[in-house]
Design a protein around this nucleic acid. Structure first.
Lengths: 194, 194
DNA sequence: GTTCTTCAATACTGGACAGTATGGAACATC
DNA sequence: GATGTTCCATACTGTCCAGTATTGAAGAAC
């Protein structure tokens, strides 16, 4: 017997971090609009009285949550890849890493759907710039000239952003093998093996 | 002297079409959330009493508006291209056509940000499938095998979707020439000139 | 010029949520 | 075991919007 659809977690006591994590969860599941005090409170089994002790405002929660995500994302995606010496292999790894859905990419997609919101736009601008720079640098190391490297990085990143959106409606209805084949083609197209 | 920021259009009398066009305008400017009866009424210089004469519900308005967009889009983008005989040239034209911002692409981007909404998801699924099929078919005619054509079409469409999103925050801050060069590289990458 | 149809204004109800104010319960500390 | 701190509940207010009900006004039809 499921304990209740929206698990009102009879947690003893909450901290600000609990609210941040719940916010990210709601964001991933149902978008930024679902990051609302009262629904989150219901979800956590408390009332909004709790929330306003930990945060002054909804915006502060969103701020804290996305900072947490940004930090976590940097740590789990960018940092591990910096160690890969061969630039072609580095890009291959990046694509492989980002092409398999993980919670952080679900959040990434949700953020893009909220790109109009005041805090989210600048966040995505920063994140996008970092990623594009990362790939541009790798392409340069791989021997492309500056302009070509920049363009190809933009192309790769755009394709990633688009793919993440499409995956959200399950548009590229593919089997696992088809998907792998797609990724391989993707890589071959962007990084021709000379 | 601007007549007033939100132009309360002292129009004599409105039709359902006026509401649909206003809905599309609001959608393009501020997303689906802005397609709300009362704000639109203010914008049109009337009250919601008018709206509920023409439409039974907000959903009906959205339905009508996106149908209008879908029809218009089919007529202005897909149809003209079907005439281009050479498949490579056809894809080139498509990319050129869709890479320069026009109102319909702004709407396309806004729709993607509302992909969670009940009416929008299925719409984008249909539209995406049509576009991907279109490009896949062109690639097949250009001599690619079935799988490669499908993958490359997916890649191209994903890049388009991502690009449209990024353009919304002005992320690929490019001059006109840089942009043209980017498009050329994009085309060369996807359709190598043998 | 009266009647019918079309469009719009006014004045509601109701729901969802942000934010405030205040009181209460549990816990630690001394 | 009284006191202070931490966390939460309750009970508000205010805002925005969907949807309904009713009335009113302008033009068309007769």
């Amino acid at each position: 017997m499921p304990r209740k659809v929206t698990k009102p977690e009879p947690k003893v006591r909450l901290s600000a971090v609990d609210w941040e994590l719940a916010a990210l969860e709601a964001l991933a599941e149902s978008g930024l609009g679902a990051v609302a005090i009262e629904p989150l409170a219901r979800r956590l089994g408390v009332t909004k009285g709790s929330f306003y002790w930990h945060f002054p405002t909804r915006e502060a929660l969103i701020q804290a949550a996305i900072e947490r995500w940004e930090h976590n994302d940097e740590e789990q995606v960018v940092a591990p890849l910096a160690k890969v010496a061969d630039p072609r292999e580095r890009v291959r790894e990046l694509i492989r890493l980002t092409s398999h859905r993980r919670p952080t990419h679900t959040i990434f997609a949700a953020l893009f759907r909220a790109i109009d919101q005041p805090l989210i736009g600048p966040l995505l601008e920063r994140a996008s710039q970092r990623r594009i720079d990362f790939v541009t640098h790798a392409f340069r190391e791989a021997g492309f000239d500056a302009k070509t490297a920049a363009n190809r990085a933009r192309l790769a990143y755009s394709a990633y952003v688009g793919f993440v959106q499409l995956a959200h409606i399950g548009q590229p209805r593919m089997t696992h093998d088809e998907f792998e084949r797609y990724i391989d083609d993707f890589i071959d197209t962007l990084i021709p093996s000379r």
